[in-house]
């Protein structure tokens, strides 16, 4: 989780100014302004972190340090996975940053397969950095572009609020099965980041619905807590153990939590009156 709410007051003021001027000119629901501004700060902090981490990750690859690059792979991704609902708004970048081999007919051999997972394949399967130097440069370039674009973005409220459920749909459809980080088996890092990103959105908007729908927030709170408790069992040295260590029983409990959170959080936009 992000430690500091605000990196600097100046940053916060700029973001607030941007939001007031752009996104809420039409018909703002005043209640949504504060949580949306907070979320924009959360995203900005994560993209800033992502740029910094990617620089270190890419530097390790450029230095041909496979061990260090492997160690930095999962933690670098977490900032991306936390803000995926926003990052995915830029389909071209999402595809070049986070596509998986399944997205290509020629799988790993496809020259247009780039980004984190192509690099992951290089580090874990090919076991060398020679092939992936170019992909590493491209990744850093893409991440910097993403950062710029997000900083200039007016956050659509329905995308932000809908992001809580969207992250759970991600986990339900492609993460729970262990398809995401198939070479490094660092999937649990992504789970954790997706949960954190979803929970952040939910927590920011929770005060707006808690009084109206106490049963709903009670159930969602409990499901986040239970999913978190299961993930916690697999934490090690500030990160996570391999996906292969996730027991079948825990995977199934997580699947029910993820699906139920997706079901419940899919009503969040409607509960807040968003289209």
């Amino acid at each position: 989780m992000v430690a500091n709410t605000l990196k600097s007051t100046a940053l916060a003021l700029i973001l607030m100014a941007g939001l007031t001027a752009q996104s809420f000119a039409a018909d703002p629901s005043l209640d949504l302004v504060a949580p949306l501004a907070d979320y924009k700060i959360y995203v900005a902090e994560n993209t800033e972190q992502l740029v910094k981490d990617t620089e270190a990750f890419v530097a390790a690859i450029k230095a041909n340090d496979v061990a260090k690059a492997k160690a930095l792979f999962a933690p670098t991704r977490t900032s991306y996975e936390k803000i995926e609902p926003i990052a995915e708004l830029f389909a071209d970048l999402d595809s070049s940053i986070d596509a998986r081999a399944d997205d290509f007919e020629q799988k790993e051999a496809d020259p247009t397969f780039t980004g984190f997972h192509r690099i992951e394949y290089g580090l874990w399967v090919e076991g060398k950095t020679g092939e992936i130097q170019g992909y590493a440069d491209q990744l850093l370039k893409d991440i910097k572009t993403l950062n710029e674009r997000i900083n200039g973005l007016t956050f659509p409220p329905e995308v932000v609020v809908g992001g809580a459920a969207a992250l759970m749909e991600e986990v339900a459809a492609t993460k729970i099965s262990g398809e995401e980080d198939r070479y490094s088996r660092t999937d649990l890092w992504d789970f954790d980041a997706n949960f954190a990103g979803s929970q952040k959105i939910y927590t920011l908007f929770r005060p707006l619905i808690a009084d109206k729908n106490p049963d709903f927030v009670k159930k969602v709170d409990a499901n986040f807590a239970e999913a978190g408790a299961i993930l916690k069992k697999y934490q090690k040295d500030g990160g996570y153990v391999s996906y292969v260590e996730l027991s079948d029983a825990d995977r199934k409990v997580l699947a029910t939590k993820v699906n139920t959170l997706a079901e419940d959080l899919s009503t969040l936009r409607g509960q807040l009156g968003l289209n």
Partner: peptide
Amino acid sequence: MKSLSEYLV
């Protein structure tokens, strides 16, 4: 499956 997502995988 939708109604019993809490219980069934």
